[in-house]
Every structure is written in C-alpha cells, then in structure tokens.
C-alpha cells in the first residue's frame, strides 16, 4: 500500500462519515450535533432529536444504494472493458424499471422481495440485450455502439412504462415518483431484505478483483494467465446486474453514479481492481448521500430528488470523460 493510497482511503472514509452525519443533521429542519447523538442514543423527547430516527433509514438507504451503484459501475466497466459503463446509460435501470412496473400493474406484485427479484431479472435481460446489440459488427462492443443501443433501449422501455402508467392511473403516483429516483421513502423492512442480497452480490464482485485485473490485459493474455475468461465475465456481470437491479428497485433509476465514481477513483488509486472495487463502493455511497443532502438543502423546504441531482452533477463529468477519450477509443 503506497502512502497516497492510504491517504485517499482515509479521505474516502472520512467523507463517508461526514456525509452520513450531514444527511442526518440537514433537512427542512437542521439538527445540532448534540441532538443527533441524543437521537441515535434513543432519546426522542426533544423535537430536534426526534427527527433523527426518521432520517436514519433514509441515510442508510442512500449509503447502501450509492455503494451498490458505485461498485456495480466499476464491475460493469471492468467486465465490458468499456469506460462508459453505467447502469442507466446501458439501459439496465430502465429494464429493471420496466419489469417492476409490469409486476405492479398486471400482477399486483408489490412486496419488496418480489420487486427486487423482478428488478434484477429486468436488469439482466436489458443488459444482455444491449450488450448483444452493441457487440454486433466490426470492432465489437465499442463505447459508442453500446451507448446508442442503451439509449434506444431505455427510450423504448420508457415509452412502454408510460403506456402502462397512463392506462392504470391507480399506480401512476407510486411509479411516477419512483421513476425520478429518490431515497425519501426508505423503510427498515426494505433495507432488511435488500441488505443481505446486496451484501452477497458485493462480496462476489469484490472476490473478482484479481481476475478482473487480468481481464484488463485482454482476453488472450488473461486466458494465458490462467483465468477462465468466460466465467469471470459471467460472474462479474451477475454481480453487477444484481447490484444495479436491486439499487433501482430501492431508489428508482439513478444515472451517472455508476459511471462517474469509478473514473474518479481511478484518478486517485490507479486501475488495480483490488482498490478500485471497494473504494468505488465507498465513493458511490459518499456521492449519493451528498447528492441527497444537497437536494434537501438547496430548495428548502422542498426537496430535489437525488436522481435529478446526480444527473445534473454527473452529466458534466461524463462530458469531460468523453472529451478525454482518444478519438480511436470512441
């Protein structure tokens, strides 16, 4: 471990603690540090301290979803060897959204567990489809072809979701809010189910760090180094799809977190996946929690949904990444 990596690890950990604390303290009503501690300790007689237990699940949800998206994005970029890997850009989130809305509208499925299952299936289907379409033809899956087939697939799913919502007004409120992407409706039951699933997928992803390093050298070289390339790619995609699908089920389609975070982490830590994957999870949690706090503070007493904030913050960084890419790489 080099000195700068240690330093950046400490920075990331400190940022996570700071944003989580800010997420509990700031909102339509600001809470002092002593009240935060009192609320966490279980004393809620004071109005300010009583806010804390209300904000706690929301904070945990933002941390969990952000970590899942950061790690999922890093895995997607590693598995596809594509710098523009992002669950929303590749149509994965919209596939998850489509599956969830089909479940709600036609089968009355609303339980958290089935919702997450549906979201994962939809995410996997959309991801596989976009990757297959984007890989056809000369040059294999170039970033441009993947981004375009992702954009088209997302547009198609969005139209279908709109059609379902319009013909079933009873579900339009829930779906409409969820589609923009927010962590406001967090509950402990939801988290209790999602936590283990995300934990397992995250662990699987982290275990793939070393094989992904070999994969980055190219398929032939990785096979020469003794990696079973197809298996690594399959397991990595599985972990990424579960992470992104469940995150979408929890908070709606949130764009650009999975894209931006691994790039930022690579700047500080280099491209070793043993660092990239865990730190991307931490940095994703920081980014999403910070975006949620920002959305709560900027437009007080109203809130800006976290999906809108991440799009506004993330799209400029996406543009910078595209500008830095070599013409040949596009």
């Amino acid at each position: 471990m080099s000195g700068s990596q240690l330093l950046w690890t400490l920075v990331a950990a400190a940022a996570l603690v700071a944003t989580a604390a800010a997420s509990i303290a700031f909102g339509s009503r600001d809470v002092g540090l002593d009240d935060v501690l009192a609320g966490l300790g279980g004393r809620t007689e004071d109005l300010d301290a009583a806010v804390v237990p209300e904000r706690l699940p929301r904070t945990v949800l933002a941390v969990v979803v952000g970590a899942a998206l950061g790690l999922g994005g890093a895995l997607l970029q590693g598995v596809t060897r594509n710098p523009l890997g992002d669950p929303a850009l590749l149509g994965i989130s919209s596939g998850a959204a489509f599956a969830v809305v089909v479940g709600i509208t036609f089968f009355g499925i609303g339980g958290p567990f089935t919702t997450m299952g549906l979201a994962t299936i939809g995410a996997a289907g959309a991801g596989a489809f976009v990757y297959a379409v984007g890989s056809l033809g000369r040059g294999g899956p170039t970033p441009l072809k993947l981004a375009l087939s992702g954009a088209v697939t997302a547009a198609a799913f969005t139209s279908l979701v709109t059609a379902m919502v319009l013909t079933h007004p009873d579900v339009s409120h829930a779906v409409g809010l969820w589609q923009i992407g927010g962590v406001g409706g967090a509950s402990w039951e939801q988290l209790a189910i999602a936590g283990p699933v995300l934990g397992a997928a995250g662990l699987l992803g982290l275990l793939l760090a070393r094989p992904l390093n070999s994969l980055a050298l190219g398929d032939d070289l990785a096979a020469g180094l003794g990696e079973r390339v197809r298996r690594v790619r399959l397991l990595g995609s599985l972990a990424a799809v579960v992470l992104c699908g469940v995150a979408t089920a929890l908070a709606g389609p949130i764009a650009f977190v999975g894209l931006v975070v691994p790039h930022a982490v690579r700047l500080c830590f280099g491209s070793d996946h043993r660092w990239l994957l865990p730190i991307s999870a931490v940095a994703g949690a920081v980014l999403l929690t910070a975006a949620d706090v920002l959305g709560r503070v900027v437009a007080r007493p109203a809130e800006i949904e976290v999906g809108i904030v991440t799009a506004l913050l993330g799209a400029p960084i996406f543009i910078v990444i595209v500008r830095r890419m070599k013409a040949r790489g596009i």
């Binding site: 929303a88 375009l148 809108i308 799209a315």
Partner: peptide, 17 residues
C-alpha cells in the same frame, strides 16, 4: 462520434431539468 456521445450526456442533464 464525440458530438453524439456529448449530446447524449447533455440530453440526460436537460431531461433531469
């Protein structure tokens, strides 16, 4: 090609607005 990719990013941002 770069124009298309940058345009996709700009579109995402404006759609959020």
């Amino acid at each position: 090609t770069r124009l298309i990719l940058i345009g996709i990013g700009v579109a995402a941002m404006l759609d959020a607005v």
